[in-house]
Amino acid sequence: MSQLDFTGQVAIVTGGGRNLGRGYCLELARRGAAVVVNDIDGDAADAVVEEIEREGGKGLASRDTVATAYGGKAIVAKAVESFGTVDILVNNAGNVRAGDFADLSLDDFEAVLAVHLNGAFCVTQPAWRIMRERGRGRIVMTGSAAGMYPEQGYSEYATAKAGIIGFTRALAAEGRDHGIHVNAILPQAGGSAMTSTAGPIASLKDAKFAGPDASLGPYKSVEAVSPLVVYLCSPECAHTGLALSAGAGWFGRVFVGLTNGWTTPELGVPATAEEVARHFDEIVDTERYEVPDGASDELGHIAKRLGLATG
């Protein structure tokens, strides 16, 4: 495969002033894209634009918040006014509020959803309209392992990131007919400004976290995540609706599967709670599973397991 080239394309990266976002901005610009660097830390956004321009690339800073419809429209409008269109959107902006659920305020809960989930909506929708009209576009959402298999703490963050996965898959299904590809990444980079300002969660100090994190720490870099994002942004990527994890030199797919399950002995006769209890190990056994493309696939799976023809 020849080198991925983004000459003539326009990208928006939210949260682009630091860490992962900065890395995406620089790499896309090095490969020819004109990049709108969005960050509420305007000084950080300006610094990234300066880096891009020093290397001969095209960049523009945006200080608008992703958390409002007005801000989202302004970010996209800046890209269109300055560079003519939008080809690529990387929704990377984020925040977090650490603490036990019993002590979590509704304001903190909603503040995290506002940036991650509402923010992805507010920026994606105006960009989506442009991409749909042009018949092409690439969108990368930022999920997290915390949203797919959360552990104790950060319940607001886990909720927002789980929502991102659903949002990704819904837009991927809708975008297929319009040439818009939407995928999500679950990055392991470490050292972000977002996580460094959050308070500690006791469970994250447990040995099961400390050991692997210490081993991977030296290798968890922006450079270990950026290649996946660059590929997902490129026309060469024909995949859509995927959640992909990356970090420390490892890349993999994260998916929701459907077990083979258990069916009642007699079709049309409802199971009892006692039967469910007796067969629960079979219901949750993951040895045999399928990965549905959508809710219709689950219906087909159930019908097949019941021996019904689906036409």
Rank of each mutant, 00 (worst) to 15 (best):
S2E: 12
D5I: 09
T7Y: 04
T7E: 03
G8E: 04
A11S: 13
G23N: 01
L26P: 11
E27H: 04
E27I: 12
L28C: 03
L28T: 08
A29C: 10
G32T: 06
V37Y: 02
N38V: 09
A45E: 10
D46G: 07
I52P: 02
A61S: 10
D64M: 11
V66T: 14
T68K: 11
K73S: 15
A79W: 14
V80M: 07
I88T: 09
A93S: 02
F101H: 02
F109S: 00
F109P: 09
V112G: 02
V112D: 00
A114C: 09
L117Q: 09
A120W: 08
I130H: 00
E133R: 02
R134W: 06
V140D: 00
G143N: 11
S144P: 01
A145R: 03
G153H: 10
Y157G: 11
K161T: 06
G175N: 05
G175E: 04
H178C: 11
H178I: 07
S192F: 11
S192E: 04
A193R: 13
M194I: 15
M194C: 00
T197Q: 14
P200D: 02
A202R: 14
L204V: 08
D206N: 14
A207G: 03
K208H: 04
A210W: 10
G211L: 07
A214V: 04
L216V: 11
P218E: 01
K220G: 01
P227K: 05
V230G: 02
C237L: 05
A238V: 15
G241M: 06
G241P: 15
W250H: 13
G252I: 11
V254N: 01
V256W: 04
N260V: 12
W262L: 12
P265V: 07
P265L: 06
E266M: 08
A273V: 15
H279S: 15
F280E: 03
T286V: 11
E287T: 08
R288H: 12
V291L: 13
P292W: 10
D293Y: 12
E298F: 13
I302N: 08
A303D: 00
A309Q: 10
